[in-house]
Nucleic acid binder design. Structure first.
Lengths: 104, 104
DNA sequence: TTAACATATGAACAGACATACATATGAAGG
DNA sequence: CCTTCATATGTATGTCTGTTCATATGTTAA
């Protein structure tokens, strides 16, 4: 079964599955999920996020760093502020998919 | 969409987003992802999984417990063995969605 | 019943990680 | 230049969690 040749099925590269887990790990923290969800609607700067979600500025900044590093959000400078937005429509899809699973 | 009334947008319940993160946390471990992926094709018992993925029996058993508790896999007894399979088609969808995101 | 096998469970340890605190960088206005 | 505001970064800490080792439960065969 888990055969690499003629079989109808094969495990992806070890590394691929590892990367996949790393991706999900990002979504596996409620602070990050909240941030991502807040960005569903509109661009937001760090303080907006912190206030909206009742989080400290540093906590948000640290998490945004992780989200940025994983290309889930992107930030553009706007004066003193940095406006963050979702980097990708997959983010939305993945979260929606998860929500669907939960609502059952 | 996530909206209950007239507003164009609203955050889901705090708890919902928390549960969502909990769900993704399950997928956020390469051992568990490997196990789930191995079950894409067919039912497998604990030892099969352990051998296929080069993992210890206990490690697999512990992870299966978590996957079971979260209703991502289900096991049925078959003599001395317990045959595990994916509990839900969402599992497949979520993983595929993640893979899509990665392959870019 | 006893032996052999398959799986599960408990405890302990090590590594990962999210947060808070203090501080640094950088931009705008006076 | 100096101050203020927005954001980022470094470090320390407490907590969570995945693995291992040892052992228990349960099943089949002799």
């Amino acid at each position: 079964m888990i055969d690499k040749n003629a079989e109808p099925f094969a495990l992806p590269e070890e590394e691929t599955l590892y990367d996949l887990a790393e991706l999900f790990k990002i979504f596996g923290d409620s602070t990050r999920v909240k941030i991502l969800y807040a960005l569903f609607e509109t661009e937001l700067c760090v303080n907006d996020i912190a206030e909206t979600l009742n989080l400290s500025q540093t906590a948000v900044s640290h998490q945004l760093r992780i989200l940025r590093a994983n290309k889930l959000v992107s930030g553009r400078k706007d004066g003193k502020n940095v406006r963050y937005s979702l980097a990708d429509d997959h983010v939305r899809t993945i979260i929606d998919m998860g929500l669907e699973h939960i609502e059952e």
